[in-house]
């Protein structure tokens, strides 16, 4: 299984889900894909489908409606999977934390592996977050990294 575990680290496909962010973080996520940051160097591909994803990248605070969607999507990702909360909003609710329709951070709904704070987060921070998630995954899998 060595080769499979190595491959897991080398090929994280992400799926980006936007709860109710101000779209600041979303733009930064997409910026990672641009030639300047080019995350495909690390095998990171942005998939539009939970069934193909390994890493769920969530931006924005969870509101009452997206909570259900987020749960559904999370359930559709095959194991092993990681969740990264990108942006202060996704970590804790951020500036929206006391809105009437906001439940709070992503971890109110699904387990989060890595928190990447920032408003909005820098692309470097997002890439760092993914690397951190991979390290966590490799530890869990017992692959030295």
């Amino acid at each position: 299984m060595g080769i499979i575990n190595t491959s897991r680290i080398k090929s994280p496909w992400i799926m980006h889900f936007d709860n109710s962010s101000c779209n600041g973080c979303d733009i930064e996520v997409l910026a990672c894909l641009t030639p300047l940051y080019d995350v495909e160097r690390f095998g990171i591909v942005n998939m539009g489908n939970p069934k193909h994803a390994d890493v769920l990248v969530v931006t924005g605070p969870v509101n009452r409606r997206t909570a259900r969607v987020l749960k559904n999507l999370y359930a559709q990702i095959p194991d092993p999977k990681m969740v990264i909360a990108v942006g202060t909003c996704a970590c804790s609710g951020g500036v929206f934390h006391n809105c009437y329709n906001i439940l709070g951070g992503v971890d109110k709904v699904i387990p989060v592996d890595v928190y990447v704070p920032g408003c909005a987060v820098k692309p470097e921070a997002i890439i760092d977050g993914v690397v951190l998630a991979l390290q966590k995954l490799s530890k869990a899998l017992g692959v030295a990294k």
Binding site: I4, S7, R8, P35, E40, R41, G43
Partner: peptide, 28 residues
């Protein structure tokens, strides 16, 4: 493709990484 888009691109063996990773995922 990456080079044509001005990116660096993944390593040549990337498809194999993807393949083995997918093999190791749980079935749904």
């Amino acid at each position: 493709t990456a080079r044509l888009q001005g990116r660096y691109g993944p390593p040549i063996v990337q498809p194999f990484y993807d393949f083995f990773k997918l093999l190791g995922k749980s079935r749904i």
